[in-house]
Design a protein around this nucleic acid. Sequence first.
DNA 1: ATCATTTCTCCATCGACCGGACTAACCCCT
DNA 2: AGGGGTTAGTCCGGTCGATGGAGAAATGAT
Lengths: 419, 419
Amino acid sequence: MGDVATARRGTNLPRMGDFNRSVIFDAIRRAPEGRSRVELVEISGLSTQTVSNIARWLLDQELVVEAGKERAGIGKPRTLLRLNRTGMFAVGVHIDPAVMTFVVLDLVGGVVAHSRRRTPKANRPERVMALIHDGIEQLIADSAVPRDKIVGVGVAAPGPIDQERGTIVDPPHLVDWHRVPLRDALETSTGLPVLVDKDVTAAAVAETWAGGASGAGSFVFVYLGTGVGAGLVMHDELMRGVSGNAGEVGHIITDPDGPVCWCGQRGCVAVTCTPQAMVEEAERAEVIAETRHAGSLLRDARDVDAQFTRLCRAAEGGDAAAGDILNRAAERTARAVAVLTNVLDVDRVVFGGPMWQRVSERYLERIPPHLDAFSATGALRRVPVVGTGVGDDVGAIGAACLVLEHTFTPSAARLLLGH
Amino acid sequence: MGDVATARRGTNLPRMGDFNRSVIFDAIRRAPEGRSRVELVEISGLSTQTVSNIARWLLDQELVVEAGKERAGIGKPRTLLRLNRTGMFAVGVHIDPAVMTFVVLDLVGGVVAHSRRRTPKANRPERVMALIHDGIEQLIADSAVPRDKIVGVGVAAPGPIDQERGTIVDPPHLVDWHRVPLRDALETSTGLPVLVDKDVTAAAVAETWAGGASGAGSFVFVYLGTGVGAGLVMHDELMRGVSGNAGEVGHIITDPDGPVCWCGQRGCVAVTCTPQAMVEEAERAEVIAETRHAGSLLRDARDVDAQFTRLCRAAEGGDAAAGDILNRAAERTARAVAVLTNVLDVDRVVFGGPMWQRVSERYLERIPPHLDAFSATGALRRVPVVGTGVGDDVGAIGAACLVLEHTFTPSAARLLLGH
DNA sequence: ATCATTTCTCCATCGACCGGACTAACCCCT
DNA sequence: AGGGGTTAGTCCGGTCGATGGAGAAATGAT
């Protein structure tokens, strides 16, 4: 049911111009050393004339700058165009169970300013909103970025998300949070456009924006955080799904002999590949000492985090039992990832998220061979596995990148007539 | 490795015009009763003038016809535009392990002509090619469709496919088939453009073209054939993946207690949800009599087909053991489908394929509740499950629809500058 | 019979891209 | 040192498709 015909919209001249500008901008952005007009002609397929016009426009807007010349043998040298990193800025907020992170990013995705605050445990929504607003304003003031150069605010939170209303559906750590109009409230209080999305999605967008070569083309971004999630990028475009909740991988079965999950199955990702699952396995096996915790289904995030660090340290230090637990998790993760790569047929798999650094070495060594073994096309077409370049603040950085992506990325949707 | 930057191409005026024409065409196509110019204006967002011009062009091309008037109260009545079903035709070929099917389709996806031939078991590729060519030419002659009205030929085969070279990679039933340039050879011998794709993909495209309301928006098409495959359609656009092999679901684990699969895991789709798996389970349980067969890993497709029919008949006739097997398969299939819907966040699931009719009633009754239970968002956002309207010849019809889709569908790719 | 209303088309305009001619900057060679 | 060849980038007029407004056509209501 619902709308009988999906509205396939047409396009017109102004949109076309806008789109082509963003194509050129994107091509410049993806080459940190800068790009000449001739290169842009080859990449975009547009005429030299058009590229020239667009370059002039971008220079006038102060979005790009001319950055030296590149002599390629005989003839007039090419003048390189590079992003003007101070041309625009974006604010990002990550609302994590444990901590809220705020960042200001410049155009190339560099962190200009940065701050953290504890996430209040259970609290009135208005109080939390005020805290967020305050964090944003404080950071803008500290960064000394002129307000008219800020293109918007991105907010990332553990899913699910109501994309339409711009709100977090049921944040497990904010008990009284119900249908709070996060986006609209922040838009009126800050006077800036606001985007809300899942942290996993945000991290994937961060990869496309600030991840360099590994963020181009089609890839699956596997996010290791409180849970495990996936961000899907196909042909440089993020797939959000119809309700903005694509990438739920928590109940893919990875191990027929694994523990029982609350969903009724055995060996789901949620009980085999998440930090919490690994920590609990280690505690049961007495590899690490059990900490006192609430005993609720949802353990305190800070506690899990600390225990997970202990587990990884033990494994690095040569504890065979600890190593086994992590190795098994790597294999199980590989199975889940194989499901994704088989279904989606992507160029590459990118790992990241707050828990990633601690296991990156082990995972990067162990997952690729498993993945080859589980691939539908076998070793015929290997799917490369890489770790993200974006560091621990992926959540907040990604949130800011949501805004940059929204305003500057040449998506097909941008071409089509709105509303 | 590979190309450093994915080529994000721009667009230009002619492409824009082409795109808008296809948008209007698509909107007309999706309303079998016809659509007025004013409606088209609303849908596309284009100006009345532009719609008027495009309508004139489509009428001149004889792709659409004026079909009566619709009076909506006061004022000049709207003249309806409808597809001219004899304006264009497409040929489709399905190369199945058991049989090759040929069809000629008109513009609305109606079957104009239709024929079948046995697929030769092991044979020289040239011989098979000649057979295909012959089948096509014979059917065109029989259908009495003028050759210049045929827009192209689509070929569908069980995957995997080499999209670049236009060939079937390793057809299990055609042993000597190795790097045979199927597309190029057919293009020269018939003089028509040829497209090659997986049968699963073709079936999904058939749904978007001839499936009515269930073929709009975002959906997963679950193809029940020799194996089980999935076609992914997101926002009216088919996702082929980077190498054209998206939708491989064969090794999603559906049952931790299921049989062992040749991939080393237990309870994969390939050994729990395919007709062959069900048939073999039934034979082991002596629900149906075992037939003499080669004993090879790949059973003769015709044999499996016949046995599967027997199994379904038994279940319909009240055989509880047979019913249990099919019910279990339904539940297992639901688990695999849940993985897809959780990951992709689609509007709906569409079932189809040559084996579908025999289990449709049972599956449509049993899968939805399982799916709700396995959904990440719970029963909150139910994903509807429907059966395809396209009948048993989905393979061949889909193959022809590949051509129609390629030439008439407003995809984003069509907008961008080629090469 | 006339008017209001809605649908649809003719006309002039705008805007973005494109092809070709032109200028600019540099290397190489004598 | 200076001219020729080569490549990079810009100016100009043309083309093509979308657009806005005025006008023509077809109908129901008064």
